[in-house]
Design a protein around this nucleic acid. Structure first.
Lengths: 216, 216
DNA sequence: CCTAAATTACTGACTGGTTAGTCATTAATA
DNA sequence: TATTAATGACTAACCAGTCAGTAATTTAGG
């Protein structure tokens, strides 16, 4: 009877805590949204009490910012390997887009676009930061591949900036879907088929006839 | 002194109230999210008190459902005119997509996709309803145009369901952007250019060479 | 080594502010 | 005068943030 029910033995893990907390916060923010997520739930999922959370973050807002910042560095880290040289601009484009899907869109990090989209107007400063550090940086990478292709005559003449936004949209949209309607409705269509059709469309185009260069 | 400050004369408008309230709720839900929006603020924007809100809706959840339902009927109403006959599948496709943008994506209703995406996991029943009544219905309409084009040999052979999801994504994504990063970061790229490039891409494709039909 | 003291990561009960939802009262219309 | 749309003060619940206390770990002393 000496070993009766006792609190489950607190562990001291100062180093690992922040990451554990932001990871728990990310999944809950993505699932429920920022405002609807309780700090008690985040703490519980991270295996600590709410008080501990305040040892590492000043406020709920500060935690949100840490989650995004953490996600950004992870994303940049995941994207590092994509700068390798490719001779074929077409292959480079494929690699960048598919790489984004596999390293970000289709992982835990894929929740960040949904979260950031949902909360942008509540955290305009974070949104601006995200837009500059992630979206514009990612777009710049893509644009390199596109302009290279245009210069070589592999791609048609198109507006580079606009085409980058258009190209990214189906992937980001799919990633966001995976975090909202997917879990809510079940019934998700085949991802491999989606990606195949996506690349088929953007690389070859919809028209069967000879390319006219005039979409009117 | 008889006409001292007095409450601004209550008006009785039983008929119009529900619409006024759902409209106010929609804009605030889209801006702040469901949980972060206060009922007092919704009532104030609609020009009534919170008590009045409860004359027309049982709860905050019920109000949310009403907002979505209202948005859906408006959207279906806005989309009615698109069923007209077109001989050219290419023109039909353009009309459907551009029509969606102009009647929904680029209007007040454009907030609903963002709202629904944000809250899908908090209201799975509403999400399922929305998915079936809006997304699948809209996709079916698009698929008609696509399959027609394929049958006539105007479009290449592609997976109809998948291509519809891909085609819609850039428009919906843009609409959601308009409701989040747009207001948060200012600096929005030119919409006309975006749409032009979008249609250019999906209708003609990116490759300058003759269409191969093999995207690998 | 072992034990005691000092340090610090961690806890959970508590508080103050906020807000969904209620209802007795008021004012507009019939 | 009767009916009912509308009000706003009120309450009960909820939750971000606090802090006095507890337990794990480290250090110092024997």
């Amino acid at each position: 009877m000496s070993d009766s029910i006792r609190p489950p033995a607190r562990r001291r893990r100062k180093e690992a805590r922040p990451q554990e907390l932001t990871a728990a916060a990310l999944s809950l923010f993505v699932e429920k949204g920022f405002a609807a997520t309780r700090l008690d739930d985040i703490a519980e999922r991270a295996g600590v009490s709410k008080g501990t959370l305040y040892l590492y973050f000043d406020s709920k807002d500060a935690l949100f910012k840490a989650v995004i910042k953490e996600g950004i560095v992870s994303a940049l880290h995941a994207g590092e390997a994509l700068f390798d040289e490719y001779d074929d601009p077409l292959e480079l484009l494929r690699t960048i887009l598919l790489g984004w899907w596999e390293r970000i869109g289709n992982t835990e990090l894929g929740g960040i676009p949904k979260l950031m989209m949902s909360e942008a107007r509540n955290f305009p400063d974070v949104a601006l930061y995200y837009q500059q550090e992630v979206l514009q940086r990612g777009t710049a990478l893509l644009r390199k591949a596109v302009t290279l292709g245009i210069e070589r005559g592999v791609f048609r003449q198109v507006d580079a900036d606009a085409i980058c936004s258009v190209l990214i949209a189906p992937l980001v949209y799919r990633a966001m879907w995976r975090q909202s309607f997917g879990p809510a409705c079940g019934q998700e269509t085949d991802t491999a088929q989606y990606l195949h059709t996506y690349f088929d469309l953007i690389l070859n185009g919809l028209l069967a006839g000879a390319p006219s260069g005039d979409a009117r």
